[in-house]
Amino acid sequence: MYRIFLFPIFTVALMLFTAGQTPAAGTDERVSAAEPAAAAVAEHGEHAAASSDPLSFDSLKRDLAVWSLVIFLIVFGILAKFAFGPIAKALDAREQAVADQIAAAGKANEEAKTILTQYHQKLADSKDEVRQIIETAKQDAEKSAAGIIAKAHGEADILQQRAKKEIEQATVNALQSIAEKSASVATRLAGKLIKAEVRPEQHKDLIEAALNDFSRI
């Protein structure tokens, strides 16, 4: 990955190294070239200050260029290996994770929407179902009530019929009893009147005959 930068860096290093390889006399030149500048800057006394011409490329600047190259190279090497390389990868990984999470969230949202729609549908269905159940229950209840009422009516009718029959029977029995007693009383009275003695068998025949007559009445 970083091989692409090796060639430019070594080329620059070679250029600067060649430029910086001035003989020892070059040092003397530098000092002598710096002297006017140092003299101009009175407060700096005898320091070998930089040339007053900022664009001149003296030996101090050559040294600085070489030094800057070395520093830049070292910094780039360290940062690429331990900082910017891992950071670039980590940022990409984080972005991928964020993108995945957003996609997952979108998917989950879609699923939730589908589930919500299904839920609403089920809720609507269950409402209809409940309504139907209530309706059915109401109808059943009405049917049951009608059945119960009909049954009660039937039973009441039966009871009424039975009571009527019993009343009629009781009436017949009562009338029969009244007729028997009336006949008996009449017979006894008649016997007393005619002073004739009537035997029990005759007495019974007379009563039955009187009852038959009575029932015909």
Partner: peptide, 15 residues
């Protein structure tokens, strides 16, 4: 310093 900026420019140029 033009030495530093010049070096950086040369690195950029070669890159």
């Amino acid at each position: 310093s033009i030495a530093v900026t010049g070096l950086l420019a040369v690195i950029a140029f070669l890159t």
